[in-house]
Amino acid sequence: MVAVRATLRRDLVLRMRGRSEVLNPLVFFALVITLFPLGISPDPTLLATIAPGLLWVAALLAALLSLDGVFRGDFEDGSLEQLLLSPQPLAALALSKVAVHWLLTGLPLALMAPLLGIMLSLPAGSYGVLALSLALGSASLSLIGAIGAALTVGLSRGGVLLSLLVLPLYIPVLIFGAGAVQAAIQGGGVAAHLAILGALLAAALIFAPFAIAASLRISING
């Protein structure tokens, strides 16, 4: 537990020092959302109908963009090997790294999404659901994505491959996340969607740390 807290603090401090790494996904998110009205149409009614999907897809891509960095820095300076050698369970240490990724990417994206929702004239009443579904969903995205990041961390050009591996696995989260916002707009029940997002997160929390640990071992030793 002490080791987990120490890893958590170290990673948080490390990431906060290099601010651009934290800010870049947010800027990317805003930029992608800006592209859609330019590319499709500035018509508010049209934008409002596609806004939930757009916001979710853009946030998902922004989270994906920052995924490669979860283990990359530690791999290059050798501290990942030290984590592997430490007597603490690797799954727990990996989980703390994923938690940092979510705190600095998923959570800010979720908080920023309502702002971009206003720009896409997202109907009122769905902003809270948007932020909540993104906060819940992006935690699963971080967990699933970290498996891919751990598998590709040893490869020099793992970036494109990483998205190829991870994006198919993101589909359920996307469906229920965007579905929750859609349901909130149409006035239907949101609880079911959010409950399934929570269930996906619970399942990912149980299985993903072990898959991440196994993948890290492969990347270091293999």
Partner: peptide, 26 residues
Amino acid sequence: ALRGAFASRDGGARAASVLAMVGVIN
């Protein structure tokens, strides 16, 4: 693609196995 990306055959084999297992759960 993951199997092909690894330089060592054993690493690629184990990575592909993990991904196949993750995929089959999903």
